[in-house]
Write a protein that binds this DNA or RNA. Structure first.
Lengths: 142, 142
DNA sequence: CAATAGTTTAGAATTATTATAATGTAGATT
DNA sequence: AATCTACATTATAATAATTCTAAACTATTG
């Protein structure tokens, strides 16, 4: 979703009603220079900080999942009990900083094309994701 | 951990007391031909099915985490709310079947060595994991 | 502008996991 | 082999993330 676009139209295009709450969430998520990563908790905080009115937690969950289903958000797998989401929905990989629990984008160009020699009969590949775990250089790792 | 090994000695070697519960869990996890994947829930079921006595849920969690810390188990990242564990602790990648929620091993030899061109200053790479999501070939994917 | 189908909401319910604190036990010391 | 002590186990409570529920609300259709 590009910057400053008409969120009302965007939402309507994919069959989501442009409600006040969804438009607010679009503004928080997409009215910015760069894509970013967040947890639901992060998002709730951002909304309550930047907006004068609050959005119910259930709505935040609903809307994030609706956006994910429509391809406006991507979920990122980390071995945490939390879900991370990414407003960058293009194919790309991630670094995960185990010290800070921060996710960092890794362009496709930063990793050579991955060639998978094995295949599962009757199954097609939906995605290939690389997760590079990093941690501080100068101390013992977990 | 090889098959039929002396679990008492193995546990002692890394500084874990060979308790009745830990030995039982070793038997369930390692007395078998092949390595496998499981969730805590799977494991609890397996224990109560195969054993005549039960092990407390808290102990299962504690022991799985103790084994993980000692390198007897590896945790696998999936965008689920559950944690998956793998008795294959060698470096390898995974397929995740989105239909059945099954994890399938993928040898290092099945994927060419991954070369990461980007690096994060002050951080060292702990691991590089590839997750290949697959789903049924003949229907619409999520 | 009324009907209706989709949305929002607060709060309850659920699920996975961790914390607590009392009891039990392995291994060392006598 | 009795005792000590640190580590383990246990049932249960607590926490945290997420989903469910059912009533109130609202965007769109007719």
């Amino acid at each position: 979703m590009p910057k400053n676009c008409n969120f009302v139209e965007k939402l309507r295009e994919v069959g989501l009603r442009p409600t006040k709450q969804r438009i607010k969430m679009c503004e928080v998520l997409y009215n910015r220079e760069k894509t970013f990563h967040f947890t639901i908790n992060d998002l709730v905080k951002m909304i309550s900080e930047k907006m004068n009115e609050k959005i119910s937690l259930a709505t935040v969950y609903n809307t994030v999942h609706a956006f994910e289903k429509k391809g406006y958000l991507k979920e990122i797998s980390i071995d945490s009990q939390k879900s991370y989401f990414d407003t960058n929905t293009s194919a790309h990989h991630h670094f995960f900083d185990e010290d800070t629990h921060e996710l960092i984008d890794c362009d496709e160009s930063d990793i050579d094309k991955i060639n998978i020699k094995k295949n599962i009969t009757g199954k097609k590949i939906n995605s290939v994701e690389v997760l590079v775990r990093v941690a501080s250089d100068n101390q013992t790792q977990k």
